[in-house]
Simulated scan of single mutants.
Amino acid sequence: MHRALLIEDNREIAGMLGDFFECQNIELDYADNGELGLKLALENSFDIIVLDLMLPRLDGLSVCQRLREAGNSTPILMLTALDSRQDELSGLTIGADDYLTKPFDLDILYARMQALIRRGSGQVASSTLQFGDITIQTKSGKAYRQGKLLALTPSTYTILKMLVSQAPNLVLKEEIAYQLWGDETPNNDVLRSHIYQLRSQLDKPFETQILKTQPKIGFYLESAE
């Protein structure tokens, strides 16, 4: 049984999701404000967090940011309003893994959640991947460049793992999108935001930029050595 944390102040939506999760055999913890949600997320272990953007006491973007700053790597699915595209991109940039706009289809929500849960649990393996000065300890799900731990979300970890596994070859955008979302691929802005977030960890703090883009086709790693 998977365990989810729902942070949502709309009681009608929360009740609907609670009934749905129960039918899907998902154990649910619930918070109706951002402060309580952050506290529960930091003090407990969850397979996924479903996080509303507009929350009392502490908004969803702040909750997401504080969780990532605290080293919490639980997959986060953000719920947003239809007219908040910039907020969606902001959420992805600071560490959310995916988003759905309201109103949403319950089956789509469940499919996205399952994809994120599989991705998170898939970080546990039994070997080390290496390319140039990048090392990925797949048993612990941690990645390093020049010995420095990279602060990655489950999504950026998955992308980096694909790039290192196939380096120095090109990885197609479609391959990355399918690995992240399966057949429920969102628009290009979401992948673009994840690449931006990965680059901010992988390239920005270092002298040599190694994450390369082949426009409209894909991405690849270039050894710094």
Score class of each variant (00 low, 15 high):
residue 3 R to E: 09
residue 5 L to F: 04
residue 6 L to H: 01
residue 6 L to Y: 10
residue 8 E to S: 02
residue 10 N to L: 11
residue 12 E to M: 08
residue 14 A to K: 02
residue 16 M to T: 09
residue 19 D to Y: 09
residue 19 D to M: 11
residue 20 F to D: 03
residue 20 F to Y: 12
residue 24 Q to M: 08
residue 28 L to R: 03
residue 30 Y to D: 00
residue 32 D to K: 09
residue 37 G to W: 06
residue 41 A to T: 13
residue 41 A to C: 11
residue 42 L to I: 03
residue 43 E to H: 09
residue 45 S to L: 06
residue 50 V to K: 01
residue 50 V to L: 14
residue 51 L to Q: 15
residue 53 L to A: 07
residue 55 L to P: 08
residue 56 P to Y: 12
residue 57 R to S: 14
residue 57 R to H: 13
residue 58 L to T: 05
residue 60 G to K: 11
residue 61 L to N: 09
residue 62 S to L: 04
residue 62 S to V: 03
residue 64 C to K: 04
residue 64 C to Q: 02
residue 66 R to G: 03
residue 67 L to R: 13
residue 67 L to E: 12
residue 69 E to R: 06
residue 72 N to V: 15
residue 72 N to G: 11
residue 74 T to W: 13
residue 76 I to H: 01
residue 78 M to I: 11
residue 80 T to Y: 00
residue 88 E to W: 00
residue 94 I to V: 13
residue 97 D to N: 12
residue 99 Y to P: 00
residue 104 F to L: 06
residue 105 D to I: 03
residue 108 I to S: 05
residue 109 L to R: 08
residue 117 I to E: 05
residue 118 R to W: 06
residue 120 G to L: 11
residue 121 S to D: 02
residue 124 V to W: 00
residue 124 V to F: 01
residue 125 A to T: 02
residue 128 T to H: 07
residue 134 I to G: 00
residue 134 I to F: 02
residue 134 I to E: 07
residue 134 I to V: 10
residue 135 T to A: 00
residue 138 T to M: 13
residue 140 S to Y: 10
residue 141 G to V: 01
residue 142 K to P: 02
residue 143 A to P: 10
residue 144 Y to E: 15
residue 145 R to C: 09
residue 146 Q to F: 10
residue 148 K to R: 12
residue 151 A to K: 13
residue 152 L to S: 12
residue 153 T to M: 04
residue 153 T to C: 03
residue 153 T to V: 01
residue 155 S to T: 15
residue 156 T to C: 04
residue 159 I to N: 10
residue 161 K to S: 07
residue 164 V to Q: 06
residue 165 S to D: 11
residue 166 Q to E: 15
residue 167 A to H: 11
residue 167 A to C: 10
residue 174 E to R: 13
residue 177 A to C: 14
residue 181 W to K: 12
residue 182 G to C: 14
residue 182 G to R: 12
residue 188 N to V: 14
residue 188 N to R: 14
residue 189 D to Q: 15
residue 190 V to Q: 04
residue 195 I to W: 09
residue 197 Q to E: 04
residue 198 L to V: 06
residue 206 F to G: 01
residue 211 L to D: 03
residue 215 P to F: 10
residue 219 F to E: 06
residue 220 Y to L: 12
residue 224 A to T: 11
residue 224 A to N: 10
